[in-house]
Design a binder for these strands. Structure first.
Length: 261
DNA sequence: ATGCCGGGCGAAGCCCGA
């Protein structure tokens, strides 16, 4: 069972790359972030032609998340619990049956939070606290789940090409990192670090200043696994080659494989 | 580097991203 996450930075601009990747990577569940589309704008026909069912939580112009799967998936949430009015489209969650039991996949686009010291940063931290509360509820089921997406948090200085350059950034703030650690300390496993403990494992390279060519990357797209999912983890990968394709997203797909028997 | 590029909206220039 392969679960993947990808911030595509506009699904309309990325349709060709997305379809090519789906056909090659064949994830069982893929969550997308920053689709920047509403239902009527989503390239549903192209994705379905590749063999995928499509569920989206869309929004005009910004944000937006989607869940794709060739299997039947019951959508269990279209926002985190206790949404405010006009909640930005940042969360989708589905549940599917596997031979090893039910698997829940949450796809999230965590607020960036810049600049620090503003209401945007406060919203980021509040959103993370909501995610922690929801994760506690999911853990009580004692089932497999994967919470994956663009977390917009650089977990440690080993996950950024220049810690100094990001010292004042919302992605590295102690409050951001603490909230991520709180999530991990509930008992979740960071899939990438479980399989690739050392060295940079970047998932994002800025479009500007030759960041890709200089390998000036960040690790901000994560897959966090419940204990029941982590017990079945067999492989983890970062599809870095996607960043070198024509008209790339600034993020690349990250995935994990679970042996669900 | 106080957004250098890229995308959305909407039809020029501004907002947003990390």
């Amino acid at each position: 069972m392969k679960v993947a996450t990808w911030n595509v930075n506009s699904v309309r601009k990325r349709t060709a790359n997305l379809v090519t990747w789906l056909k090659a990577a064949r994830p069982d569940v893929a969550v997308l972030q920053e689709i920047k589309a509403q239902e009527a704008q989503f390239p549903r026909a192209e994705i379905e032609a590749a063999g995928y069912r499509v569920e989206i939580v869309g929004q005009k112009g910004f944000n937006g998340v989607a869940l794709l799967s060739p299997h039947p998936v019951e959508i269990t949430a279209r926002s985190l619990p206790d949404p405010v009015a006009d909640e930005p489209a940042r969360y989708i969650e589905g549940r599917l049956q596997t031979p090893g039991g039910p698997l829940t996949v949450g796809g999230l686009y965590l607020p960036n939070g810049n600049p620090i010291g503003t209401e945007k940063f406060a919203y980021k931290i509040a959103w993370m606290e909501r995610l922690v509360r929801h994760t506690r509820a999911l853990l009580e089921r004692e089932e497999m789940f994967v919470l994956c997406g663009d977390y917009n948090v650089i977990p440690t200085d080993a996950d950024v090409y220049s810690p100094a350059a990001f010292a004042g950034d919302a992605l590295t703030q102690p409050e951001s990192r603490k909230a991520l650690r709180t999530l991990l300390n509930l008992g979740l496993t960071d899939a990438v670090r479980a399989f690739h403990a050392d060295g940079p494992q970047y998932t994002y390279w800025d479009y500007q200043a030759g960041a890709w060519q200089k390998d000036n990357g960040l690790r901000i797209d994560h897959l966090l696994l419940s204990p029941q999912a982590a017990d079945r983890l067999t492989a983890v990968g970062i599809d870095k080659e996607q960043r070198g394709r024509p008209e790339p997203s600034d993020h690349v797909p990250v995935w994990c494989e679970l042996d669900v028997g």
